[in-house]
Amino acid sequence: MGMFELGGMTLKWLFHKPATKQYPQVQVPPYPGRRGHIENDIQTCILCSRCVKGCPADALEVDRKNRTWSINLYRCIQCENCVRVCPTHSLTMSEELAGPTTHISAIVHTKPEDTSKKKVSKNDSSKQS
C-alpha cells in the first residue's frame, strides 16, 4: 500500500525540478535576517571593546593603541551578540555568507586618525603652556 504511494511520489520527482540547487552555479537568495557574517563600519566605531566582552567565542579583538578592530571569521559563530551590544550600531550582520579563503587570518580594520580632535588637543596644550 505505502509502497505504491512512495513509488508514485518518486516517479513524480523524476520529472520534477530538482529539490537541490546546483550551488555555486545557482545562487540561493538569503532569507531576510539570515546570519551571514559580521561587518564593521569603522568610521562610526568608537573602539569601546563592548563587542569583545560580549563575544562568547573570543573572535574579536580591539587594539586602542593602534586603533584597530579585528575579527577572526574562523572563530566567529555568528551569534549576533556583538551587534546587539554595540552602542553606536557600527556592527551589522550581513545576510551574505563570508567568502571562501585559502588561509586563516583575521580581518583587521584600522580606524583613521580623527584630525579635528587632534587640532583641539594641540590648541589645548598650547594654551596650557
Partner: peptide, 20 residues
C-alpha cells in the same frame, strides 16, 4: 532560516525571552 536566521544553530534564545 526564515524565522531565526540560522538553519541548525538557531541562536534565538536568551535569558529573558527571544533575541528577535
Amino acid at each position: 532560516e526564515m524565522t531565526t536566521g540560522g538553519r541548525v544553530i538557531l541562536s534565538i534564545n536568551k535569558v529573558g525571552g527571544l533575541v528577535r
